[in-house]
Design a binder for these strands. Structure first.
Length: 515
RNA sequence: GGCGGCGUAGCUCAGUGGUAGAGCAGGAGAAUCAUAAUCUCUUGGUCGGAGGUUCAAAUCCUUCCGCCGCUACCA
């Protein structure tokens, strides 16, 4: 039976437009999904949008349209971003879809049946004007004794509203056991420590319904309440598998292998979500991995600064694969990073244009001009050839290891090590000299270079599907481009098309800095 | 305040007890197949400060300085 691999991005909240951060999560998940497909696994890759809650209700009101129309619009924008980024998701779930509402209602009933839901009261500082609750430290007392919300200035009052609660406190020990028994459950390590100490500090029950607004999934049996958005949202990972009927075609994918999330929502995925699943007697995902945030030119992305970056503009200017490469190469996955034009251009020029692109071009165009435009005959290999080919044969395992740890930057670093080795090889062997003295040897060298480029291309496909696809075309690689083709030697004599540059060098116009 | 992390070459970082490393940037040379890309050599660091343990410390301990994260329900 084929191994299944289920990977998710968070469902993106539709109260704002998609930006660089969303694209980052999706690209990382896409690389994982594509890698596992190369491995021959049965992959299910899910993304989508989270569309309920007070903020969405408010945003729709501001836009002057009904919430459903609003969410349709923003959800389409996220779909468009996925298309532009060449994200290979197998499904796109929306929490306003009937299949999801049914799943969420069923989970609620399961939690209730199992005795983990009770009716209590949610208390807090409520601003009628904002229709929102505030924490005490988000409010301040005015001289006349009334209390206002610091951010909006609206008067707040202490409100007690009935609310259903989830007995999260019952799962404290079980969660700690989970983290203990599965060190890889939360990644990276630093987040695991944070979450562990958070859980150790004591868990309170979680308010999971609201009566103060209505844009949500109704609580089964008590329709004055709508479900708390996070309970609603987390269930999406099950909804897409066909839950509550896990005997259907998608049921085999649950539990998920990886939930990729931004660091701001790790807690919901590493604490609340497993607790809910435990309470519903469902199997737990294998791993929750959180990545960092991007600043842009050293500054935090924010609407007020006006630097919220729509990745689609970057793609239009620099190319899709270039942006995908940068996102995963520049920063160790899990860390924060900075996105700057200068760093992006530096990566494109030194790694892609001068590195991979130039290696491919100098090899392929030489073959095109001097070796009959076919994969040259291998001939008798020498020590230097075998050394390089040995590095090729080790590459998939090295990349597999790095990707298994979600260390995308290390995977790319391994690949570039081989690119540099191949550049050294071509210089030392100098096929341009051999052309005049020993064409058999020249052919051997070119053959080894083709084989090297094939290895590099195959493992690089998940990162840069488009340009690397072209590279494999230029190398005459057929339809099967999975990792298994690297187990067989490259066939000689295949006709090769005329190559063209893969990654154009970026030349920035000199902005006359000197006055 | 409590818990945790970080501070290593101009930049981004690797390196957890045994002669300071990589990539990029800088310098010199070589080569000319190639997107003037490539290759070789090379400049550059009192490993945040101070003290301690040890035959030996970037690596362990103490303390100080600086930066950052977490410290729950509104993503």
């Amino acid at each position: 039976m084929t191994k299944t691999f289920y990977i998710t991005t968070p469902i993106y909240y539709v109260n704002g437009a998609p930006h660089l951060g969303h694209a980052y999560t999706s690209v990382a998940a896409d690389v994982l999904a594509r890698w596992h497909r190369l491995e021959g696994h049965d992959v299910f890759f899910l993304t989508g949008t989270d569309e309920h809650g007070q903020k969405v209700e408010a945003a729709a009101k501001l836009a002057g349209i009904p919430p459903q129309e609003f969410t349709d619009r923003v959800s389409d924008d996220f779909k468009d971003m996925a298309r532009v980024m060449n994200i290979s998701n197998d499904d796109f779930i929306r929490t306003t879809e009937p299949r999801h509402k049914a799943a969420a209602a069923d989970i609620w009933l399961k939690l209730q049946e199992n005795g983990f839901i009770y009716l209590g009261a949610y208390e807090g500082w409520y601003a009628v004007r904002d229709e929102a609750f505030y924490d005490e430290d988000e409010t301040e007392k005015k001289p006349d004794g009334t209390r206002i919300a610091t951010s909006s200035g609206a008067t707040v009052e202490w409100v007690v509203e009935p609310s259903y609660f989830f007995k999260l406190s019952a799962f404290q020990d079980k969660l700690l056991e989970l983290y203990e028994a599965n060190p890889g459950f939360i990644g990276p390590q630093a987040k695991r420590n944070e979450i562990t100490s958070f859980v150790k500090s004591g868990l309170r029950d979680l308010s999971i319904s609201r009566t103060s607004f209505s844009w949500g999934i109704p609580v089964p049996g008590d329709e004055k309440h709508v479900m708390y958005v996070w309970l609603d949202a987390l269930v999406n990972y099950l909804s897409a598998c066909g839950y509550p009927d896990l005997s259907g075609p998608r049921g085999k994918y649950w539990p998920a292998n990886v939930h990729l999330v931004g660091k701001e929502i790790i807690r919901f995925h590493a604490v609340i979500w497993p607790a809910i699943l435990m309470a519903a007697n469902l199997p737990l995902p294998a791993r929750v991995f959180s990545h960092g945030w991007w600043t842009v030119e050293g500054e935090k992305m924010s609407k007020s600064v006006g630097n919220v970056t729509d990745v689609r503009e970057l793609v239009a200017e620099f190319g899709l694969d270039q942006v995908r490469y940068f996102l995963l190469r520049e920063v160790p996955f899990g860390n924060d990073g900075d996105f700057s034009r200068r760093a992006l251009i530096g990566r494109i020029n030194s790694d892609l244009a001068n590195g991979l692109g130039n290696l491919a071009q100098r090899t392929l165009s030489f073959i095109n001009k001097n070796a009959g435009a076919v994969v040259p005959p291998k001939g008798r290999l020498q020590e230097a050839d075998l050394v390089l080919l040995e590095q090729c044969s080790q590459l998939p395992e090295k990349v597999r290891g790095a990707i298994g740890r979600l260390a995308f930057h290390e995977a790319l670093d391994e690949i570039w090590r081989l690119i540099r080795a191949a550049d050294g090889y071509i210089d030392r062997e100098a096929p341009w000299s051999l052309r005049k003295t020993d064409t058999a040897r020249m052919n051997s060298v070119l053959y080894v270079l083709c084989a090297t480029l094939r290895s590099i291309g195959v493992v690089l496909q998940p990162f840069m599907p488009e340009q690397v696809g072209r590279l494999l075309d230029y190398l005459g690689v057929g339809d099967d481009r999975s990792l298994t083709i690297l187990d067989s030697a490259l066939a000689e004599g295949i006709l090769l098309p005329a190559p063209a540059g893969l990654f154009p060098r970026i030349v920035e116009e000199q902005k006359n800095a000197d006055r």
